[in-house]
Amino acid sequence: MTSLFKKVSKISLGVVTALGILSAVTTPAMAQGERFVMIYHSPDSDSWWNTVKNGVNVAAEQMNVTVDIRNPTTGDLADMARIVQQATASNPDGIFVTIADYDVLSGPITDAVDKGIPVITINSGTHEQSEKLGALLHVGQPEYDAGFGAGKRAKSKGVTSFVCVNHYITNPASIERCQGYADALGVDLGTQMIDSGTDPTEIKNKVIAFLRANPDTNGILTLGPTSAHATLAALEEIGRAGDIHYGTFDLSGEIAKAVKSGVIAFAIDQQPYLQGYLPVVILTNLARYGVLPSGHINSGPGFVVKDNIALVEKYAGEYR
């Protein structure tokens, strides 16, 4: 009996020590007291958020504040709602959160607002949704408008039939991008949006298959590096790189290179760095001095083309 007790106490002591070490590692030194929480919707493995996180880290260092970055590990939005509730319960000095799905998140976010926590919405979601939730402002890129802008550029280059390579079809924003593009061209979206999945080999071969089955396609829109890189490889393989008008959302080293060589006509930069950087700065200044910009902030769309690529390329994937 005593030995069992000893064993149990030994184990629990070990667990407690381990937890202590863990918490010492995860809690950075307290700065000037302010603590903010950023919550976003993508699974751990989504590479795009890295730039936002870099923005958060730079701002947190400059402002001398702590920012906890939280997300549902698998991208499950129900988990995300739970995380928002947890964050609210921890009484931070401010929360900035993506409106990945208005219906799922409106309850928890409104609760945070009603509790008196300053909330800024970032990235996904519209200005109207942000206002309805009672958030201070929205920092992001209106998705439909960005897609529409891309479509206008494509139309001026004579695009009449296109394929929208969607690697994240479960996100409503992704469909709005394709829809905006189609509307600007004045054609029906129909089957021109393909659900490509996320595996590069599969995306590449699906694009080849689509172009093979629809040979009159003369425009391509990809929704981010995941689909863009594989589509580049596909065009390379069938020898149509530079032949088809090709626009993409977001930036990466490889996309920048393709813009330079003329294979990609433009990359739409929503400047995610700002979506991480600005909320921290705004919330800090609000907490310290009570100042707040009025109105929403459009971090994008910025169009990256051959002429302005130099600076962008240097920091692609890191700060751009």
Binding site: S45, S47, D199, P200, E254
Partner: peptide, 17 residues
Amino acid sequence: AQVMEFGSAAADRGLLK
């Protein structure tokens, strides 16, 4: 094979494989 074909590696490769 995938890294060599596409020239890049990403942390989200192989999901659900």
